[in-house]
């Protein structure tokens, strides 16, 4: 028998298939684990309505649970409350940065909410002399930037 916290830790093995350095727990996609007797319920929430990684993440969760010998489980997808980039943990933000993706501005940053472009530091060289190329990058959750200092392109995890 495992506690909800132990299962949360176990599920840190499940990574975002499109950003394989960050776990679904750090990403905030893993919302809740409920344990009642030997029944386990895992609640996950999509980042975007059309996120194609969601089904893969659900399957990975199921596989990890099965491997751990947990047979009686359900994985539920919920939409509400809607996922926000503010739910990405501090360690998650650092891992994004190390992976070359600028972490999202916080939604409390008024410029991000009002449609302005907040100052974004290049994850490669750290310069803030950067420029938005497109609001839509390699996936729905990222915007494409370029750094005017080191001339490298990079992704920004969009504020949502």
């Amino acid at each position: 028998m495992r506690t909800a916290e132990e299962i949360q830790v176990l599920l840190e093995q499940v990574k975002d298939p499109e950003i394989p350095v960050i776990s679904i727990r750090e990403l905030g996609v893993l919302r809740e684990v409920k344990v009642e007797g030997d029944a386990v319920e895992v609640v996950i929430t999509p980042t975007y309505s059309g996120c194609p990684a969601m089904d893969a993440m659900q399957e990975d969760v199921e596989q990890v649970l099965r491997k751990a010998g947990i047979a009686n489980f359900t994985v539920k997808q919920v939409l509400s409350p809607a996922w926000s980039t503010d739910w990405i943990s501090e360690s998650g933000r650092q891992k994004l940065l190390d992976y070359g993706i600028a972490p999202p501005p916080h939604t409390s940053d008024i410029r991000a909410l009002k449609g302005g472009v907040p100052e974004t530091a290049c994850p490669q060289c750290g310069s803030t002399d950067t420029e938005l190329v497109s609001h839509f990058g390699s996936t729905a959750c990222k915007a494409l930037y370029k750094c005017n200092a080191c001339k490298e392109p990079f992704d920004l995890f969009k504020c949502l």
Partner: peptide
């Protein structure tokens, strides 16, 4: 290229909403 990617990303959002 950037617009190709933008439109398909927007399409993906819309189709996700349609599924819901």
């Amino acid at each position: 290229l950037e617009e190709d990617i933008a439109q398909t990303n927007i399409a993906l959002d819309l189709i996700g909403q349609a599924r819901n």
